[in-house]
Design a protein around this nucleic acid. Structure first.
Lengths: 244, 244
DNA sequence: CGGGGGTTTGAGTCCGTTCAAAATACGTGG
DNA sequence: CCACGTATTTTGAACGGACTCAAACCCCCG
């Protein structure tokens, strides 16, 4: 919060490591040139906000490094962190731009990050000249929609414990180190309140659920690191909701 | 259920009333011809299923008349009806096609419907020749994503009663008759269990919430028709969650 | 060694669920 | 038009999971 924001580090789209795995992979050299010239880049400290709920959408954000979350918050302080956290290579804020709406959530920096900003004029220009880029965004948005719908289902039909197990699996695939004997170590990039906000619950409830999982030997939590002795039994946890 | 499925009624895309309000409005005459020639049309009775969860996606569905819902169901019988119900002019099943996934929900006919089917080959062909169509789908998918995210927020932060109030407002804008003195009459197109599935609760709980709303004079339920004496007070209900 | 933030624990409450029964609406045939 | 059987909706009582509020705890850092 109190830290100063370093000016744009010299990041170049052409040498960006994530380019080939992102939607921008379909751009021609010339279009890449346009993108590179019109982007601005910046370092953001944990806790900073990229955009606020109800803000008009000025463009999209490319995460070069770090982690960003989208939070929707209520008047009484309650909040949710929406499903997909934006890590290196992710694009952020495309939804309101493409839907022609304002931002419906606040983008909050969860870990110190380096982020590029691309103004909406540039995005529209690229979109109108290269249809393939639109198809890429279409795929991304459709995927995200599927995940959001899954989350709706989970919130109404799965217990808190199962939702946490589910989140763990997703996190493991992204941040975990999975050894071939089934043991897993995971370093969560989230505080407890944020973890709670991701599964739609209060920190206290999450804490209790965690204690039970530890008691059952499924997952051992110690601060932000999680030890899972047997990945299979974690998966079993997910599929055995409502059984005996 | 037991009724026979009438063969394709003679529906013509060129004379379709919904064309100009749907994503297809961007098609050229020639493309419309292609669409019209390759679609198949069919009447579906209430209770029928257009596609099942985990089915591969064979194409998309255009609702000409009626109402279709997407249901995700759990092993123990619990289920959710996802936000946007597909009525006349809506397109269905585009998400899995564009995301390259299987269907993640079951499409269930809620009211007798007439539906056109467009095979994925045709859709891909149209998409590749007319980028504007892709942009239309992009807008639709982005809107849907926003609504899904709103629903996630509601499920975790709003009481059942407020969620019902919220759904009522959405339904009123779509199916209700709103007279200028604030009185509203709404004919719900849903059974109680389906209404419950839309707000992520059990029918019994919905019934109780309804009783309270009636007791407070906010909305009077009688079967599937709802009488709202003052639309403003219904809106107030939504914004006053967690106050006193 | 003494804060201080983040995390855990505890006790009590509330909302929504569960299971079972009653009431109401609905469609059909007499 | 009414009687009957079925399906849907409502009600009731008991239960349970997650919440609230508050206090205790822990770990990290100064």
């Amino acid at each position: 919060m109190g830290r100063d924001k370093p000016a744009a580090p010299g990041i170049n789209c052409f040498t960006c490591q994530h380019r080939n795995r992102s939607e921008w992979c379909v751009l021609s050299a010339q279009e890449m040139e346009q993108l590179n010239a019109n982007k601005t880049c910046r370092a953001h400290a944990k806790g900073e906000v990229l955009f606020h709920e109800d803000d008009p959408c000025l463009g999209i954000y490319c995460v070069e490094d770090g982690l960003i979350g989208i939070r929707k918050s209520a008047a009484d302080g309650g909040s949710v962190l929406l499903g997909r956290l934006a890590g290196p290579g992710s694009t952020l804020g495309y939804r309101p731009l493409l839907a022609g709406e304002t931002h419906h959530g606040t983008a909050e920096v969860l870990k110190d990050s380096t982020v590029c900003f691309i103004g909406k004029d540039t995005v529209w220009d690229l979109l109108s000249h290269n249809p393939a880029l639109g198809m890429e965004f279409l795929r991304i948005a459709s995927r995200a929609l599927g995940e959001a719908e899954d989350e709706i289902f989970q919130l109404t039909n799965l217990s808190l414990r199962t939702r946490i197990a589910h989140l763990l699996v997703v996190m493991i695939r992204r941040f975990g180190t999975l050894s071939d004997d089934g043991r897993v170590v995971l370093e969560l990039p989230l505080s407890r309140p944020d973890l709670a906000a991701m599964v739609g619950a209060r920190p206290e409830s999450v804490s209790r659920a965690i204690r039970e999982m530890t008691a059952d030997g499924v997952a051992y939590f110690s601060g932000r690191t999680v030890n899972i002795p047997d990945f299979e039994s974690l998966l079993r946890e997910i599929h055995h909701e409502g059984h005996i």
